[in-house]
Amino acid sequence: MTTRTLAVVSAGLSTPSSTRLLADRLTAATVEALRARGDDATVEVVELRGHARELADHLVTGFPAGGLRSALDTVAGADALIAVTPVFAASYSGLFKTFFDVLDADALAGTPVLLGATAGSARHSLVLEHAMRPLFAHLRAVAVPTAVFAASEDWAGGDGGTLTPRIERAAGELADLVSGRRSAGDGGAPRRSDPFADVVPFDQLLRGQ
């Protein structure tokens, strides 16, 4: 049995937060789906609200301070990511985007990701496909085909109670991508770009001078 690290990023702001609630449902379903495939899972939740000031500071100073550093490391080192944001002004929230703005550009390359979003009405649901999916394509993450949107009515069991089946389908897709892979902590290729590894020896640069 391989133990997989599952990072969960939630950009919900209120307490309790429906974004966090969706993240928790997706997480529980993914852990279960992994178990069904013979893998164990360690879950690391990053609540972005707790890093709001550190994220603004990072924009100004160019480096992550305190807890933000370990949050970024957690996401970069995970075998899979569940990323959930509330919809703000037709897109992911600024807080959510800032986290992925300051994350190392290669940190999610090849990482399986499950996308989720919440809003008051289902009219915002295409944010998943029109905003979130391109962001993770840019980060070269592997987003699973099913992304999960939850509107207020879904929590009331509206729309014929389709939320739970969608969650289970998405979790199954994520588990399929994760199980059978080499674990990031188990000799998998480091995804973080190492600026010191890219240095060209100077004699080589001078060739032809």
Binding site: A56, D57, L59, V60, T61, F63, A65, G66
Partner: peptide, 13 residues
């Protein structure tokens, strides 16, 4: 670095 971290935070980092 103004308008970002506090003096105390920046001093420790």
């Amino acid at each position: 670095y103004g308008h970002g971290p506090s003096l105390e935070e920046f001093s420790s980092e």
